[in-house]
């Protein structure tokens, strides 16, 4: 049912129009579902915690939906959401630093196993996720963000350029360097050598 509605309203502008003039609940759901993975993955890269990324994503959508009627379309919705996400994540990081200053929080994360996938699949995914995350963390921030936005979120260079404020040429160079470094890191890692042997 929801997917059929999503097909009926597949562009951001249609969803915004629906939100402003018609059924705001339905449009809000479509809006969130359309962008939730993008917002969540940006927040996760920034915060490195699934719980924080989840909270941040909710906060981003609440702020976005409150201001959706005043969205003027000067940039794409994704660019707009990216900026909101970065602002909220920065705020969360500041709060986290402030709290850890007083509580000596080591920043370690406790994660729950999802109940929708098998434990074996979960741990395989979990291991790879962690390994890949470690590889990603070895990249400079600009390269890491460019790689993520291009590789995972499949954004165009023009969209990424608007988000990061870097020229398209610079982004292409960053992307190549990020892929090159990741390939070397993964190729030399023990994890990848043992991949599939278990």
């Amino acid at each position: 049912m929801m997917y059929s509605m999503a097909l009926a309203l597949n562009t951001d502008q249609e969803i915004i129009n629906e939100y402003c003039s018609g059924d705001s609940n339905r449009a809000a759901t479509l809006f969130v579902r359309k962008h939730q993975k993008f917002v969540y993955s940006v927040a996760l890269r920034y915060l490195r915690s699934h719980d924080d990324a989840d909270d941040a994503a909710q906060e981003v959508f609440i702020r976005a939906l409150k201001n959706l009627r005043s969205f003027r379309g000067e940039s794409s919705v994704q660019t707009w959401l990216y900026r909101i996400t970065i602002n909220i994540c920065s705020s969360i990081v500041r709060k986290r630093k402030f709290i850890s200053f007083f509580t000596r929080d080591d920043g370690s994360e406790i994660e729950l196993i999802s109940d929708t996938i098998s434990p074996q699949q979960h741990f395989e995914n979990k291991d790879f996720e962690k390994h890949f995350e470690q590889m990603l963390l070895q990249l400079p921030e600009k390269q890491r963000e460019t790689f993520a936005l291009r590789y995972f979120d499949e954004l165009t260079y023009e969209e990424i350029s608007l988000m990061l404020g870097t020229s398209v040429g610079g982004l292409k160079a960053n992307y190549f360097q990020a892929v090159q470094k990741l390939a070397k890191l993964l190729k030399n890692s023990e994890f990848m050598k043992n991949w599939g042997k278990a």
């Binding site: 993975k37 999802s114 890949f132 990848m192 991949w195």
Partner: peptide
């Protein structure tokens, strides 16, 4: 290297992580 990386379904991982966000936001 990336032929192995691309075996990972990051999309479904994210899907699982974000499946209830719309409900909680509402």
């Amino acid at each position: 290297v990336f032929s192995k990386v691309e075996q990972m379904d990051f999309n479904s991982i994210l899907e699982n992580r974000t499946r209830n966000i719309s409900v909680r936001v509402r």
